[in-house]
């Protein structure tokens, strides 16, 4: 039995290494001179910080990172709260029109973004949110994915806990906020990763809705450095991609430590 576990460990780590192998290209390429960027070896003589420096000198990347943080964190936090509420209502509470509401919410997942881009612009423009943080944030909060996953989680959530709370005289809302929500960490963690990453990497929507340079998010700012013209500076592009991925990497390391134990195993005791 012991041996088997170590075989599994080795297998998993080897697969993991294969998964990150393509990223090696990104990391190494970001520190190479433009003419050696396609050479995958690690010659120290070709090592340079110029690409990184160029990214920092050609655009106000710090400002763009701050903007992206504001947008992604706000969207994620607000989305977690209201999606959890909706998911809980759909999983646990009985009310007229439940099945229809659920079906309707799921159906909003099924439209390709490129199709609703024009009317969405129209809505946001008419609400006076274009060229502001609100225009970047508010439309991105509403997404059936989170509601769907929270509902799934609460369907399997142990009922006994809530019943105990009702006996103690807590209202439904009180039970949810004081008891259920804090125990929802196992699902909040993956969803935080998903929402933050999706919004951090969002490019199309911010590009369309915002014209103000001071509100540029990371992806737009980086596209402005490497895009345009007829030549692509691969080394700079990879450096830009690496910089843009680092905050997400950091988030992964921070939050996924919390992805350890389930509700049933910790909550009941």
């Amino acid at each position: 039995m012991k041996l088997k576990k170590s075989t599994l460990t080795i297998f998993a780590i080897v697969c993991g290494l294969l998964m990150i192998a393509p990223i090696y290209f990104l990391v190494v390429g970001a520190f190479k001179t433009p003419d050696t960027v396609f050479d995958l070896s690690l010659h120290l003589s070709n090592f340079t910080f110029d690409n990184i420096k160029q990214v920092f000198s050609e655009t106000n990347i710090v400002r763009a990172i701050v903007n992206s943080l504001i947008v992604s964190v706000t969207v994620t936090v607000v989305a977690m709260l209201i999606h959890a509420m909706a998911g809980y209502a759909l999983a646990r509470l009985n009310f007229p029109g439940k099945t229809f509401t659920f079906g309707w919410i799921i159906s909003t997942l099924m439209v390709p973004f490129s199709v609703i881009m024009i009317p969405l612009y129209m809505v946001v423009q008419n609400l006076g949110m274009a060229n502001s943080y609100l225009g970047l944030i508010v439309p991105m909060i509403f997404n059936a994915y989170g509601i769907f996953l929270f509902r799934q989680f609460y369907l399997e959530f142990p009922k006994e806990l809530e019943e105990a709370a009702y006996v103690e005289g807590l209202s439904i809302a009180g039970t949810f906020f004081r008891l259920v929500l804090p125990l929802s960490k196992p699902i909040i963690v993956p969803l935080t990763i998903g929402f933050f990453t999706a919004n951090w990497n969002n490019y199309l929507w911010p590009m369309i809705i915002n014209q103000k340079e001071e509100l540029n998010v990371v992806q737009v700012a980086l596209a402005n450095i490497v895009g345009g013209g007829y030549e692509t500076e691969w080394s700079v592009m990879l450096a830009a991609a690496l910089i843009s991925a680092i905050p997400t990497f950091i988030l992964f390391f921070i939050v996924q430590r919390h992805l350890v134990e389930g509700v049933k195993t910790t909550g009941i005791k």
Partner: peptide, 13 residues
């Protein structure tokens, strides 16, 4: 460790 490695590709645009 393995989980982080599997998850990293998801971070890249």
């Amino acid at each position: 460790i393995a989980r982080t490695m599997f998850l990293l590709p998801f971070a890249i645009t």
